[in-house]
Design a protein around this nucleic acid. Structure first.
Lengths: 415, 415
DNA sequence: AGTATTTTTTCGAGGCTCGAAAAAATAGGG
DNA sequence: CCCTATTTTTTCGAGCCTCGAAAAAATACT
């Protein structure tokens, strides 16, 4: 249950804190770090001296701009790009992409590949993933030994321990323990992450002012996904990656959802649902497997041009999202929302109905003040999030290694 | 943002840990504490010696039962009842109750009082609360100086910082900063808690095996409330006490809710909703102010006797609760549920429809394994929860006082 | 009464952070 | 060009804290 703090944990945690401060701030001086962490100058000096000695941090030239001050100039500390490297693997519908990223966060090498994820066999899918990773590892420019961690993201449900994909819309196969597979194959620690959670992490790094302690990232794509950060931590379910916003019930016994159930938010707001409604196929029509981005854009254009079934389809999507958000907000209170994915580009068509619906709910009490941001392209976000996820793992578990993980401290997500 | 750990925090945290271990275990020996906290025997010995010296813990006679072991017998440590005392104030519909509790958790003194909360003026309501507290404080048997904290619970929405009631069904008045009012009046630190959160805390103390890290307490009363513990911590909204399960939307544009909106879960499952449906008044009928427990029991009896509108009313309640839980479970994964309140006594009437509905949802994937427990009487639970809340505050903030609360450490709820 | 066993305390060692003072590095002024 | 004021960084001793090992305490068994 609860566990005491041992003396040796102290240094470990404070080391992690210093590394985190440098990762966040970019090039902070020792003095700045002392200020943000609340530790004394002596401590910061000692820790950063260690970290520099170990090749984790480097001293960079004093920041040029502010050299009009008197006194000894500050020396910036920055992450040593060569301290380590991580790999990200993003598996989405018909698309596989991998990148190698240095310790400072720069992409060193990448590869992308189309494949037919829906029809591939289980082994073929796993094979493609290991093969693409192997090709990157065998890249002659790359020092393989420096790859400290692999983070793999997939659309769908993963388990809380970040080991396996439990279910995904991009493949009929279930329960693939990707993290274990990659670990066994390459001997590199790996984790399996949910795509929307990675989006949330990326948003936080991109715009920490807007996306700080509490916010929501919603993926408006073929399906509807969500990444949720609450009180500064990534929120996951207790068993699975959780946050299945798309499968909250909007309308009991309502429209047929891709998941086989009825009335889910997704069954009104997913691309296939918008498509189905725009084509007036009826709510019982079997969801189509995929709608191309081009088709969705055409739908949006049509909806903007005339008041017809297309516009009504987006209105319904907005209504479902609005009631869903309203129920969510009843539980967690309103927070900034980022709408990500193709249909985020059509948010102008969705927003009016969404706001009207949310105003009908308990969570929408201050519906005017709830702010939405849109980002049509989810892939770069997912990749960035994966990279930061893997890098912070290295920060914490390799460069600030502690006593062997002890009960009560394990499984805390840091967004 | 993130903050370093200072050397002096160490002792403070480990002290708190030892106190917590004693409060949980009852009469643990030093050896047991060392085992559960992971700290060394020397450390536990030193800390407990301090705590005994300060009068916080006492040594109790070795536990009798297990005296068949060889070796030096264990000396049990227990909380010194006289170390401090706390007061709980529970304000519910037409009822005010207060109790004084010693440091070991025993009730020393209590008082209860009926009043007409719905019609009272704001000042009268506040006045009743301060008066009843004052009467307890002036109790000649009581050493006033030892009251270290007051925890006040109310049905309704409170703010995250536990200072004020924002809205409550028991009174038309809003935004009453009860915690500040009591603090100013008596100079004793006070907090304002949500009733369902206190229920959750109490359940955890009562049955830590069933209610450990993740569980849900649902109040089935005139309104529907929820207390939620996730990953071992009380879950609250980001601004308010949150967890307004009763106001998740079950049916867009559906039945009229007491909150003025439409289609909330409560508008189908609250006592007034069951009453309204049983009387076949229609979904637009204005919610009645109160239904007596006796009337609700009569309703349940009628529903058990014949298949009529009463039974249908309970079925509708079950359906709304089921879909609501399904949506909730989509977000957080299934967890054990405790149904508390008058209508929990009619859970046999509610359960079939509830299970059927939940099986239609994403969160109900393993609906058979979701287990429900019932507890018809909410008041004792709320009182117990309040007491434990106040006592753990004393444990942590008075008997293990730290550096002045620093950013990042504040606002963590410990259930 | 003596031995084995278990719990608790004692004691010295090693680490960590802190505050104060010293050292280092620069800008400004005469 | 040198000296002083200023700011950052390092150094050093002090004070705590936890730990492991050994000692002390308290009981059951033989």
């Amino acid at each position: 249950m609860s566990v005491g703090i041992r003396h040796d944990d102290l240094r470990r945690r404070n080391r992690a804190m210093v590394i985190a401060a440098v990762r966040r701030a970019g090039q902070p001086s020792r003095t700045e770090i002392a200020a943000t962490t609340g530790l004394s100058h002596s401590t910061i000096s000692a820790i950063s001296s260690d970290l520099i000695g170990e090749g984790i941090l480097t001293e960079s030239k004093p920041s040029e701009a502010g050299s009009l001050k008197r006194g000894r100039p500050q020396v910036g500390l920055s992450l040593n790009p060569e301290a380590a490297a991580v790999m990200t693997v993003v598996l989405s519908l018909n698309f596989l992409s991998v990148a190698v990223i240095d310790y400072a966060g720069q992409v060193i090498s990448e590869e992308q590949r189309r494949l037919d994820t829906l029809t591939m066999s289980r082994d073929a899918l796993i094979g493609e993933c290991t093969a693409i990773v192997r090709r990157r590892l065998e890249d002659p420019d790359l020092d393989v030994r420096s790859i400290a961690r692999i983070a793999l993201a997939i659309q769908g449900i993963t388990d809380t321990r970040s080991r396996a994909m439990l279910w995904s819309p991009i493949t009929p196969h279930t329960d693939i323990a990707f993290a274990d597979i990659l670990e066994d194959e390459f001997g590199i620690p790996a984790t399996m992450e949910n795509d929307c959670n990675m989006m949330a992490i990326a948003l936080r790094w991109r715009d920490p002012d807007r996306y700080r302690d509490d916010f929501i990232a919603i993926l408006l794509s073929h399906g509807i996904g969500m990444g949720l950060v609450l009180k500064g931590e990534l929120f996951t379910g207790t068993h699975s990656s959780g946050g299945e916003f798309g499968h909250m019930i909007h309308q009991p016994k309502g429209a047929l959802c891709r998941c086989g159930r009825r009335g889910c938010v997704e069954a009104y707001a997913g691309n296939y649902a918008i498509w189905r409604n725009a084509r007036q196929l009826g709510e019982d029509a079997e969801p189509v497997a995929d709608v191309s981005d081009a088709d969705m854009r055409a739908l949006a254009t049509a909806a903007r041009e005339r008041d017809g079934p297309e516009r009504e389809a987006y209105r319904k999507a907005g209504e479902a999202l609005g009631y869903g958000l309203g129920s969510l907000f009843a539980l967690i209170d309103p927070a900034p929302v980022a709408m990500v994915g193709v249909s985020a580009a059509a948010f102008d068509l969705i927003e009016p109905a969404l706001r009207e619906a949310i105003a009908q709910t308990a969570g929408g009490q201050h519906s005017k003040s709830i702010s939405f941001d849109t980002e049509p392209n989810e892939l770069p976000l997912i990749r960035e999030g994966c990279a930061m996820r893997a890098l912070t793992f290295v920060d914490q578990e390799i460069f600030a290694p502690g006593v062997q993980a002890r009960a009560g401290l394990v499984g805390k997500n840091v967004a």
